[in-house]
Design a protein around this nucleic acid. Structure first.
Length: 589
RNA sequence: GCGCCCGUAGCUCAGCUGGAUAGAGUACUGCCCUCCGAAGGCAGGGGUCACAAGUUCGAAUCCUGUCGGGCGCGCCA
């Protein structure tokens, strides 16, 4: 609908030689906008004001000539100049009636754009290390990423959702040794658990369940012989001691068990945690197309190959026994190590190759959704892409800020180490999937999120998700009432009698329904699902107001069918919007 | 110290690519069920858009600075 007005203005400008040139670099779509106030019509453009300077004429004079040049259109009822030079468009009732017909014809496709052939988008999100269950912070990444994926798809882009599994490297050894030690405990070992090990209860559960056939118990003496002392606390100054100790333990585990057996324990642990994450996400309505394993990069030698290429091109250099990537040449703050002096490749090395691999797989545009604490890492990955021959701009990063939980007005304390962090699963069980999905995306992603458990749980008007779902359920209820009265909705008759919908609530509602495709596009383009959230809230409000103002199931058939037609269209749009948010649209509550 | 994000009603937050009188929810006050779900609706008060300069016909929005809050700055991930 917005495009219709924009096109009219565009054509008018093109037909005016004195304005054509000055308007050439204005994007017409951007100068036409919905009005905030109904007294300004339905759409407005400020193009006359923006051209005034270039053509040295008053905005109102320019507006007058634009209006004179506008082509006749049945959808446009009235055009007038207002204020300093706005051109306001009043669309005809028939234009809105046509939108209602479109909504009913298109159904779940209303607001969706035709599939585009490209750019092909790879959307990577969550990518939490497989060292434990997802927590509420990951929940925000999951909800945001899933919704962005839905929005991109709705706007026609081919999009693939990917989870990068950091299943290689040091952390996995620590995971393996943690599980092994818990298993040893179950066999009666009294080796104290390392400070830097994974201490959560889920480690014990994995230890109790894994297959250790053929793996012998080790004595405490054999495990601890010659090892350095563990850090005695979690304090920062003890950190080196803690990390050294747990690494030594992992090395010892490999000696005692043999690499193969240790691998078995480690891999089972990873598989178990990944299965849990997968199940958790599926329960949360989050679909992942590809689980991309970091091990697969290591195993196939692609990391070594890529580093060799960079070395050949003379990009990498050696210093202090390590191999460095000159990230500063690409605008990063400092150079970064890719191979440590001890021969271990850093995560950055695999990140370069991973992002290169995404492009090699044919994805044109890469979107990474990351926690805000990863922002320092963006410029170096872009640098890596450039060094590998692609553009840094191919990578778009959306940062998501932290989540704080509130209960009874108090912040819920969460520390990963202390084991008091709240898991996504706990949150889902407590507040429900719908409320959680909705709450997570109701704020701008670059805003810290205060997640109020009491509001999310409340089944009342305090909770916007219920308010919107209630509007949907209420419409379903109207149709049930209709059937109870042995009446039926005649859609054709309704559409033939749309002129019956002349009351202000009805006009407001129709205007809102016509906005939906624009809201989807705006939300998708700005990676900003909160626009859709606010829109749905407003739409539900428009419906509830109308519901309270008028009775729908009236005796007069033409009026009844017309009103039910509007109800049906509203139901469709609410359902479409909620679906994109990953929230259910219930028939009753 | 340097970099990124944020600062809008008592509270939680929207506000697009600069436009017309600054928006919701919540809380507070009062009203509306003989009627399709009151899990709803209507009305009211509540603001120096952190602060200061600047660009512009026009700034909550763009630029610069100051103050306040969060995060990041490893041969960790």
């Amino acid at each position: 609908m917005k495009r219709l007005v924009a096109n009219l203005v565009n054509d008018a400008l093109a037909s005016l030689p004195e304005l054509k040139e000055a308007a050439a670099d204005l994007s017409m779509e951007s100068t036409v906008e919905r009005t905030r106030d109904a007294s300004h019509g339905h759409f407005s453009t400020n193009v006359a004001m923006r051209l005034a300077k270039a053509v040295r004429k008053s905005p109102r004079d320019i507006a007058t000539s634009i209006i004179a040049a506008l082509a006749e259109n049945d959808s446009v009822e009235k055009v007038e100049i207002a204020g300093p030079g706005f051109i306001n468009f009043y669309l005809s009732p028939a234009a809105f009636h046509a939108v209602i017909a479109t909504i009913l014809d298109q159904g779940e496709n209303y607001g969706r754009q035709a599939a585009k052939s490209g750019p092909k988008i790879l959307l990577e999100f969550i990518s939490a290390n497989p060292t434990g269950p997802l927590h509420v912070g990951h929940g925000r990444l999951a909800a945001y990423g899933a919704t962005i994926g839905n929005l991109l798809e709705a706007t026609g882009y081919p999009v693939s959702r990917e989870y990068y599994v950091n299943d290689a490297g040091r952390q996995m050894d620590i995971l393996g040794v943690s599980v092994w030690l818990r298993w040893q405990e179950l066999q009666g070992s009294d080796v104290p658990f390392p400070q830097a090990g994974y201490r959560g209860d889920y480690i014990r559960e994995i230890a109790a369940a894994i297959d250790t056939a053929g793996i012998a118990n080790a004595t405490s003496e054999a495990i601890l012989d010659g090892l350095p002392a563990d850090g005695v606390s979690n304090d920062a100054e003890e950190k080196d001691a803690r990390e050294a100790y747990v690494e030594a333990l992992a090395a010892r585990a490999k000696e005692l068990l043999g690499e193969e057996n240790f691998d078995r324990i480690r891999q089972q642990s990873i598989d178990s945690i990944l299965a849990d994450i997968e199940d958790d996400l599926a329960g949360f309505g989050v679909k992942i197309d590809t689980w991309f394993s970091e091990q697969s990069l290591t195993r196939t030698g692609r990391i070594d190959d890529a580093l060799a290429v960079l070395k050949e091109r003379g990009i990498l250099y050696e210093k202090d026994g390590a191999t460095w990537f000159p990230a500063t040449d690409y605008g990063d703050e400092k150079d970064r190590v890719v191979i440590r002096a001890n021969g271990v490749k850093t995560y950055f090395a695999s990140d370069i190759v991973y992002h290169f691999d995404k492009r090699e797989r044919g994805f044109d545009h890469l979107i990474d959704i990351l926690g805000a604490d990863h922002h320092g890492y963006v410029s170096r990955v872009r640098a890596g892409l450039e060094a590998m021959g692609y553009k840094g701009d191919d990578l778009e990063v959306e940062l998501v800020q932290f989540v704080a939980l509130f209960r009874d007005g108090e912040k819920v304390a969460m520390t990963t180490r202390g084991g008091t962090f709240v898991t996504l699963r706990q949150l889902r069980e407590e507040v429900g999937n719908d409320a959680a999905r909705f709450y997570y995306v109701s704020r701008s992603n670059d805003q810290h999120l205060d997640f109020d458990l009491d509001i999310a749980k409340s089944q009342s008007n305090d909770n916007p998700v219920f308010y919107i779902q209630y509007a949907h359920a209420r419409i379903a209820s109207v149709f049930r009432q209709l059937a109870d009265k042995s009446l039926a909705w005649d859609r054709t008759n309704g559409q033939d009698n749309m002129a019956e919908l002349s009351e202000s609530h009805e006009k407001t509602l129709m205007t809102s329904l016509s906005r939906y495709p624009e809201v989807i596009e705006l939300s998708a383009n700005n990676r900003a699902p909160q626009h859709l959230v606010h829109y749905l809230r407003d739409l539900a409000n428009d419906f509830h107001s109308w519901y309270n103002a008028q009775f729908f199931i009236v005796d007069e058939a033409n009026q009844r069918d017309a009103r039910l037609t509007l109800c049906a269209a509203t139901r469709t749009v609410i359902a479409n919007g909620l679906t994109i948010l990953g929230v259910s649209a219930p028939e009753s509550m």
